[in-house]
Design a protein around this nucleic acid. Structure first.
Length: 556
DNA sequence: GTTCTAATAT
DNA sequence: AATATTAGAA
């Protein structure tokens, strides 16, 4: 069933406290409207002057939840301007003008509804629907500040209702923008009204609460988990803007680590028991009770950072998200120790990341080593071929060793040790050793392993390149020119001489690989070159015979 | 007790 | 797919 009585009781006062910006140049009508709205517990901010209204909206958009703007023959432009300015504010246009094209224009410009005057209580009563609608349908980013709290409060209400049928009102504690206040309001709205959509045609509902990945969910503890006890107040839904994952930044021991490390953790709420939909199938509301992510903070960690909502903290087991940042720290620690001295406990020490456990590190280390084992053996016999080869391709590679055992202390990478991972523009979305987008340093360090190591290893062996980054890498699925970052050698042709050269190098390398190791598959997208063309190319480079091992590399 | 590794669970 | 967890051996 959709709603329990309790749920409704939580809802019925909903509009109360919603802030309505009212722009009506007719002061009389404005006053009337205001009183009607206030009778319904809306908070009204009347404006007679559109400029004032505009500046109010511009300056403090978060101060309003919904706007009612009057359009008249004289102020068309102003009204439209308002619509443009207050895009994030659900705006209801109202007018004495009953001109379809005006209506259309308003709607086209983003008005959520067009209401003819006079505005009856009936028409006004449920304008809150627009607020809710917008709150739930706006993509996370587009959600205006004023709507977030509303959305969260609503989510909270629904959630609670779904959880235990007994709404709690904690959410109203959110003072900042006390948009929602519950009190008794004798006046029962009908359930139908409550949940029906605004009269305005609704476009797509894609962004509904649950469907939308970026909606924050609120945690839900599954019955069988012990976690319930700990989140004594987990039920209380924070109305802060925190979403899905809280970044817990551990202000590490300030001593030497200038910047804090952050361990992103996400609660791992497994709500395996029942399907989310069972609870509340009120799809119409778009409110569902999906599994949720709890926002949480590292238990041990760090106080300070997100102190705003301290207790949401511990939920269940926290999973370490090995972000590029964190991984970088890890790698730095490993390097600092030397690969053979790098044991979990020491790495952990060096990393100085609060909340991180030895186990976490061990686990990561295990994986790290595995990757290296796959990748590095291919490199360890590679030398610095630059000089002896025509196309000194990039085998340079970093001194990091192949096998831990052989490799003792570490190496100073040519470039920044583990350059660019950190401030990666796409922090979490890309996997560090994902199949594309390598950070520049990655080739050498890459954890990536692929079936065609033969061919690819070369590419990955690609070095840490000189600043200029003349080196290119090639792999069929991941090749990247870090240098310029612009050319995709899979498809595009080089666009300038430098790149052209790079491309040639790539070609050379591939050709050589192919000749050298004919049993290996060719990179995708490459057709086997004809023998002639290969020979021609080689001869063009002054290589008239095919040496057994072009790179002087040993296959064994 | 710690580490490493592999296997397995989440 | 990435991590965690576990277990056995060193």
């Amino acid at each position: 069933m959709v709603c329990t009585a309790d749920g409704l009781s939580a809802w019925k006062d909903f509009p109360k406290g919603l802030k309505v910006l009212l722009l009506d140049e007719d002061s009389e009508s404005a006053a009337e409207l205001k009183s009607k709205l206030e009778a319904m517990d809306y908070i009204v901010y009347p404006f007679c002057n559109e400029n004032e209204a505009l500046s109010a909206v511009s300056i403090r958009p978060e101060s309003f939840h919904v706007a009612i703007v009057e359009v008249n023959i004289n102020n068309n432009d102003g009204s439209f301007k308002f619509l443009e300015t207050a895009k994030d504010l659900p705006t209801i246009m109202t007018s004495n003008i009953h001109c379809i094209s005006t209506m259309m224009k308003c709607i086209a410009l983003g008005a959520v509804e067009f209401l003819r005057k006079p505005l009856s209580e009936e028409k006004l009563r449920n304008i809150w629907q627009h607020v809710v609608h917008k709150a739930f349908n706006a993509a996370g980013k587009d959600l205006s500040e004023s709507l977030k709290p509303v959305k969260e409060s609503l989510v909270s209400m629904l959630h609670l209702q779904l959880e235990n049928g007994e709404p709690k009102n904690e959410h109203s504690d959110k003072s900042e923008d006390a948009s929602v206040i519950h009190e008794n309001d004798p006046e029962p709205s009908t359930a139908i009204d409550m949940y029906s959509a605004p009269s305005t045609p609704q476009l797509e509902q894609g962004g509904r609460l649950l469907a939308d990945g970026d909606c924050q969910d609120h945690s839900n503890c599954s019955p069988e988990t012990e976690s319930c006890e700990q989140d004594r107040e987990s039920k209380s839904v924070e109305t802060t803007s925190d979403n899905i994952i809280a970044e817990v930044t551990a202000p590490v021991g300030q001593p030497q680590g200038p910047r804090e490390t952050s361990v992103k953790k996400e609660a791992d709420l497994v709500d395996g028991t029942r399907d989310e939909n069972t609870m509340c199938s009120q799809a119409q509301n778009g409110v569902n009770n999906k599994d949720s992510h709890a926002v949480d903070e590292n238990p041990n960690s760090v106080s300070g950072i997100h102190s705003s909502f301290p207790s949401k903290a511990n939920r269940k087991k926290l999973k370490v998200d090995w972000t590029p940042e964190l991984h970088k720290k890890f790698v730095e620690a490993v390097d600092q120790l030397g690969i053979d001295q790098a044991i979990p406990s020491r790495i952990l020490e060096l990393m100085k990341v609060e909340g991180l456990t030895r186990h976490n590190v061990a686990s990561h280390l295990q994986k790290y080593r595995m990757h290296r084992r796959h990748i590095l053996p291919k490199e360890d016999d590679r030398k610095w071929p630059q000089r002896d080869h025509v196309q000194r391709s990039c085998y340079p590679h970093k001194p990091i060793m192949a096998f831990p055992s052989h490799y003792s202390s570490h190496v100073v990478p040519v470039g920044p040790p583990y350059p660019v991972w950190g401030p990666s523009p796409h922090p979490s979305s890309i996997q560090m050793w994902g199949s594309h987008s390598y950070p520049p340093w990655q080739p050498a360090e890459s954890w990536h392993w692929k079936p065609y190591t033969g061919v690819h290893a070369d590419a990955w062996g690609c070095p840490v390149m000189p600043p200029l980054g003349y080196c290119s890498t090639f792999t069929q699925n991941a090749s990247v020119f870090h240098c310029s970052g612009t050319v995709d050698n899979r498809s595009g042709m080089p666009q300038n001489s430098v790149e052209h050269q790079l491309a040639e190098e790539v070609v050379d390398k591939v050709v050589k690989e192919a000749i050298n190791k004919p049993w290996l598959p060719l990179p995708l997208g490459l057709k086997p070159p004809s023998t002639d063309s290969v020979l021609a190319e080689l001869s063009r480079q002054g290589i008239s015979t095919i040496p057994p091992h072009i790179n002087g590399r040993n296959l064994s």
